[in-house]
Nucleic acid binder design. Structure first.
Lengths: 191, 191
DNA sequence: GTCTATATACAGATAGAC
DNA sequence: GTCTATCTGTATATAGAC
């Protein structure tokens, strides 16, 4: 952890926040430098271009996603692990209402540009789906696992879009109830 | 339909296409003017700002959505009307894989900016959900109609994001099968 | 009404002092 | 390594000839 990495991390964290809040295209290097309290020109000592900052942000988010999944993996039952994912989304409902889902907007914005960055963002989504797939397999839904995983992630992402559009965090709580119920149908006993 | 409106419409159509393909923020007035074969400076005779072009595009899409819904409304059963919506999405799978869903990306991009335009885009999504809600009511699912409508639109929108991210139109076909089956569960007989 | 030329502002990126 | 000053390109928007 050198001094150099400190400043670099400040820049990546600032970019991460601004990309989420305003979108990548609208965010300027000046915005990032300003939030990170680093002089504009200095940015190019750490990154050769704006794209390489975007790449660094994606890598950081990938790391964070891995940590989240590792955290969920500790849970004993696959059902609880899926519940943890869904509940995690609800804890983000406030910021989702303000700025959308970080992963979803990243994929949406980069997806149109057809570049390497789009593939990297898509890879994050892919890893999340793969993780869900494993949980469904553990629940015995082996043949349908992939479809169910896509369905779950799509539902969450679609709901995040509604939450953003209608600025209504509560919509997410309401809908995740349904998702949780659907999970419960096969796993819990009536009580 | 004066000559004036012709050029205006050319500009709106060009903007509509480019906003979908590249996103609003990345699309420049020069891009729009060029595609519409209108000199750049002339754009300001028809629109006072870029935002007012965005507004015109949203209004046009609103009109198109109304036409689509009117078209579907002709169908006899509410179930067929919902099927028509889902199948319409699948017919768009190619362009969704290339540029995402037009409505979804609009809401995602504008949703972060918290302006009047964001509200207008959200209104489109709202109208689609309301339309779905009516169909569910007609199917007798009165109390759950709103939830089911949100769920359906969210599923479609989420799937559109996966299709864009993974550049895989077939994913949509695959998933809409599931949605159609779910609709079918309550309405069709085994055969 | 239509278009050319241009003002103005600001983006990403660079040069080079310290 | 760090920062100031600035280049270069290009965006939105305007002025004004025709």
């Amino acid at each position: 952890m050198s001094r150099q990495n400190d400043k670099r991390n400040q820049l990546v964290n600032a970019a991460d926040k601004l990309f989420h809040q305003k979108g990548i295209n609208i965010t300027t290097l000046a915005d990032i430098a300003s939030l990170a309290k680093v002089p504009l020109g200095n940015v190019y000592y750490y990154f050769k271009s704006k794209d390489s900052i975007v790449e660094a942000v994606i890598q950081m988010r990938r790391q964070q996603l891995h940590e989240k999944m590792a955290e969920w993996n500790i849970l004993a039952s696959a059902r609880d692990r899926l519940v943890a994912l869904i509940e995690w989304q609800t804890t983000l409902s406030q910021e989702t209402a303000a700025s959308g889902d970080a992963l979803g907007s990243l994929c949406q914005e980069l997806g149109k540009q057809h570049g390497v960055l789009a593939d990297m963002a898509a890879e994050l989504l892919h890893e999340l789906i793969q993780w869900c797939e494993k949980q469904w397999q553990a629940l015995g839904r082996v043949t349908e696992a992939h479809t169910l995983a896509c369905k779950l992630v799509a539902s969450l992402q679609g709901m995040n879009l509604l939450v953003l559009s209608f600025k209504d965090p509560n919509l997410l709580n309401c809908h995740t109830q349904v998702l949780l119920q659907e999970l419960g149908v096969r796993e819990t006993v009536a009580s």
